[in-house]
């Protein structure tokens, strides 16, 4: 069976005044219909850049490598040149939800107008039909008084309501793939719980593929089927969510889990990962995690390692360098 989305050997570099920065190195992931892939990592790990590459939303100074592929429906997105090709992807087959719902709506245009506009670009609908679909979507994401909200501006809605409206807008074109970039991070926990439950129901109902980006392992545990852990632009561990969170093998994944305050175990000490995430300008060669790895060798042999995932158990992929040191 063909995957819904397949990313192969993706490198992303940015040309900046200070030099060429590697944001993503050799990332390969795939996603099937109806599945949720969680991507976790700290700030600067390349989670958002990965998602933006799929939509081709990275800025003009971005450089992709030649042999990289991002395949959606047998078409390589990276080879698209015309805006018409890209339109099929952006908002058509693929929709995106961002972290800050206030920043994602135009402040001076009514929410309903924004919903209609994007629907009419992607679907052969007249205004009346587009309006009906939009109001129906607002109803389905649990917005009371959908007709009234349709004629309001983003600032008139509360945070949770705005995020619901954002979800309604993203889903109204019936995308095959949804990219959700920290969709619950800006929300309070009680609202986060509402939005997560809503998203779970909707993912099931629409049978979409979802890439769910977050820094919160708890959220990943609750929504994702599979998870990829990213550090400084590389995937260091990947597999079914249950396996990765219960049996983490890479020292970075273990570090993330140990640093997390667990409400069910108040006596466990909080163990930070030593050091700081290096600047992408001086990205370590070899294993990118070696500068913070508790198992890094004295003689520095990790400098010469080439990173790459190997399957250590069925479905559980681990970076080569982490295979040895994860056993310790």
């Amino acid at each position: 069976m063909n995957h819904l989305l397949e990313i192969n050997n993706l490198d992303v570099k940015f040309d900046t005044d200070e030099g060429r920065i590697t944001a993503i190195e050799n990332v390969s992931i795939s996603l099937d219909q109806g599945k949720v892939l969680g991507i976790v990592g700290e700030s600067g790990s390349g989670k958002s850049v990965t998602a933006k590459s799929i939509m081709q939303l990275n800025p003009g100074n971005t450089i992709y490598n030649d042999d990289a592929e991002i395949i959606i429906d047998d078409e390589n997105v990276l080879k698209f040149t015309s805006n018409n090709d890209l339109k099929k992807i952006r908002g058509g087959k693929v929709s995106m939800i961002f972290q800050e719902p206030m920043a994602s709506f135009a402040p001076a245009i009514k929410i309903g107008h924004q919903m209609i506009e994007q629907l009419m670009i992607h679907k052969p609908l007249n205004k009346k039909e587009a309006k009906d679909i939009s109001i129906d979507m607002l109803n389905r994401v649990g917005i009371a008084d959908a007709e009234k909200r349709f004629n309001q501006y983003a600032f008139e809605l509360s945070g949770g309501m705005r995020q619901r409206a954002m979800i309604a807008m993203a889903l109204s074109t019936m995308p095959k793939l949804l990219l959700a970039d920290e969709p619950t991070t800006a929300l309070d926990v009680t609202i986060q719980a509402q939005v997560i439950n809503l998203m779970k129901d909707i993912i099931k109902e629409f049978n979409m593929g979802v890439i769910f980006i977050t820094h919160d392992l708890g959220v990943i545990a609750q929504v994702a089927d599979d998870v990829a852990v990213m550090y400084l632009g590389s995937v260091v561990e990947q597999g079914p969510v249950n396996e990765i969170l219960k049996n983490p093998m890479h020292p970075y994944t273990r570090g993330l889990i140990n640093a997390l305050p667990d409400i069910n175990n108040l006596d466990a000490p909080l163990t930070p990962i030593p050091g700081n995430i290096p600047s992408p300008l001086d990205r370590p060669n070899g294993c990118v995690f070696r500068t913070r790895c508790p198992h890094a060798s004295k003689e520095g042999k990790e400098e010469n390692i080439k990173m790459g995932l190997v399957e250590v158990k069925p479905g559980h992929w681990l970076d080569k360098c982490g295979v040895d040191c994860g056993k310790k």
Binding site: S158, G159, G160, M161, D188, V189, T190, I191, Q192, A193, Q194, I196, N197, D216, L217, G218, V219, A221, Q222, V241, N242, L245, K246, I257, L260, D262, I263, N264
Partner: peptide
Amino acid sequence: KALLSSIPSIDPENKSKAIELEGEI
């Protein structure tokens, strides 16, 4: 109680449903 139940558990098998509060503050 609702606040505590809203914290997403890191255990994927523990999908206990949060006590969902209606609406917002």
